[in-house]
């Protein structure tokens, strides 16, 4: 695939403090995401996937090791990173338009430029008609598209997503997965997608990091060269990958 590394993670460690006690969450995580590369992270519930994304997004600081995005610490690169949270993270007090424009507004872009970019992205994601609605007036799939629009409008170098489609019905989920695949391929966007849906990981991840149960370590990185075609789900190779991932995960305990 080539390209320069967007994310470099070396020997990453992290723990939470719970009632004065340390709970080790991530151990010895090493990983590199190159330009245009899509990673999926999969692992048992409570193994530290969300925490891992927060560290990449610069919302938490590592307890040990190093995380770099485009060569600097994520906190310094926050404006080049887009994060879509598990429950979309839209603000109920802002309309779709205000939500989408927010990142640009905070970057101090001129109003005209904000409007131009927001219009373009809303058009692209089929949301133009919904611009004046509040998030509570949208369906789950529409909310998810707004969250994607809000992240992509700032033209990030790195897109992080936490279980982006888990709350959606199977049909909508597949449609949005295809849609996302097309988006990240056209933009050659470095992507890290956390999921516990094995098929989603196999469909969207060029490389798939399998995490162990708590404390999360990378058990294995599965290469998935067949992905990238919207019809991949119908192929033998896809199901082989899915079955392999399932067998790797089944050996894992649930975090207590």
């Amino acid at each position: 695939m080539g390209g320069s590394p967007v994310v470099e993670i070396e020997d990453l460690h992290f723990f939470y403090r719970v009632g004065g006690r340390k709970v080790q969450v991530l151990e010895e995580v090493n990983l590199q995401v190159r330009e245009g590369e899509a990673w999926a992270v999969i692992g048992p519930s409570g193994c530290g996937k969300t925490t891992f994304l927060y560290l990449l997004a610069g919302l938490l600081d590592p307890a040990g090791g190093r995380v770099a995005v485009c060569g600097s610490s994520p906190r310094q690169r926050q404006r080049e990173i887009a994060l879509i949270l598990q429950n979309y993270g839209l603000f109920p007090w802002k309309t779709v338009w205000q939500n989408v424009v927010l990142g640009l507004q905070m970057r101090g872009l001129p109003r005209r430029e904000q409007a131009r970019r927001a219009e373009a992205i809303l058009e692209e994601l089929g949301l133009a008609e919904l611009a004046q609605r509040y998030p509570e007036e949208l369906s789950g799939g529409q909310k998810q598209r707004v969250a994607i629009a809000r992240s992509l409008v700032t033209e990030p170098s790195l897109l992080l997503m936490d279980e982006p489609f888990s709350a959606l019905d199977a049909l909508t989920r597949e449609r949005l997965q295809n849609f996302l695949l097309d988006l990240i391929q056209r933009r050659r966007l470095a992507t890290v997608l956390v999921t516990h849906n094995i098929e989603e990981a196999a469909f969207l991840g060029r490389r798939i990091a399998v995490f162990s149960s708590l404390p999360g370590r990378i058990l294995e990185v599965v290469d998935n060269p067949g992905m990238g075609d919207p019809d991949y789900r119908a192929t033998e190779k896809f199901w082989q990958t899915v079955n392999y991932l399932r067998s790797r995960l089944q050996g894992q305990r649930l975090a207590s």
Binding site: L59, A82, L83, N87, G89, M106
Partner: peptide, 10 residues
């Protein structure tokens, strides 16, 4: 989560 949401938007 709301704080993370705005921080991650820069």
């Amino acid at each position: 989560a709301a704080i993370y949401s705005i921080q991650s938007l820069g």
